[in-house]
């Protein structure tokens, strides 16, 4: 069990480092998916099968799909279709596939030996998680809902098209800045007042 933990942990670290260092967003997302799956295996070996399932369903499933959708939806036009094709060249899959294969090997080993391996600590099932969340940590759940409220209102405001103001879309062209394209974010160097 310990060996499985360490292998999965190494895979997670490797995949995360590769996620951070990839310049291409789609390649980074592939590695991020592998990293999340590896963390799920780590959770399982630590006696938290419920957390492992959640990790796969929520992170590797729902959130990653959302990421991929956004990346794909943002890029429109002929040029980007070609670009995407080049991103998804077979070579790009080799790294994530190898790491994922290691995880598959681990999981199939665990399945084959099911029942004979005991986790080093007591298992925490959905029952205990639910009792903890709605017992002592009830306030934590409520606070998390306010975290989401703040994030939702913030994203709604910053992301909304009408955030440009009560002017119509047509009058946006006379504004400098956003409409003129280029970088949204100026670096510190060309501030008028001079950055320290």
């Amino acid at each position: 069990m310990e060996a499985i933990f360490y292998i999965a942990a190494i895979v997670a670290v490797l995949a995360t480092v590769l996620t951070v260092t990839r310049l291409n967003p789609v390649h980074a997302l592939l590695y991020l998916t592998v990293s999340l799956l590896a963390v799920a295996v780590v959770f399982y070996t630590l006696g938290a099968p419920f957390m492992a399932a959640l990790e796969v369903v929520i992170y590797a499933g729902a959130i990653m799909v959302l990421f991929v959708f956004v990346v794909m939806l943002l890029n429109l036009g002929r040029h980007t279709v070609d670009l995407e094709r080049s991103w998804l060249s077979p070579g790009a899959f080799v790294g994530p596939a190898i790491l994922a294969a290691i995880l598959v090997g681990e999981v199939s080993y665990l399945l084959a030996r099911s029942g004979t391996l005991t986790p080093p600590v007591a298992e925490v099932g959905p029952h205990q998680v639910a009792l903890a969340l709605y017992g002592p940590y009830l306030l934590g759940v409520e606070l998390a809902s306010f975290l989401l409220l703040g994030a939702l209102v913030g994203a709604y405001h910053v992301g909304s098209r009408r955030a440009q103001g009560r002017t119509t879309v047509g009058s946006r062209s006379d504004r400098t800045g956003l409409a003129s394209g280029g970088d949204l974010v100026r670096t510190g160097a060309d501030r008028p007042s001079g950055a320290a």
Binding site: H157, V158, A163, Q164, G165, R175, G177, L178, L184, V185, R186
Partner: peptide, 8 residues
């Protein structure tokens, strides 16, 4: 959001 510096 209309100010670049605010977004930055």
């Amino acid at each position: 959001t209309e100010r670049e510096i605010s977004l930055e």
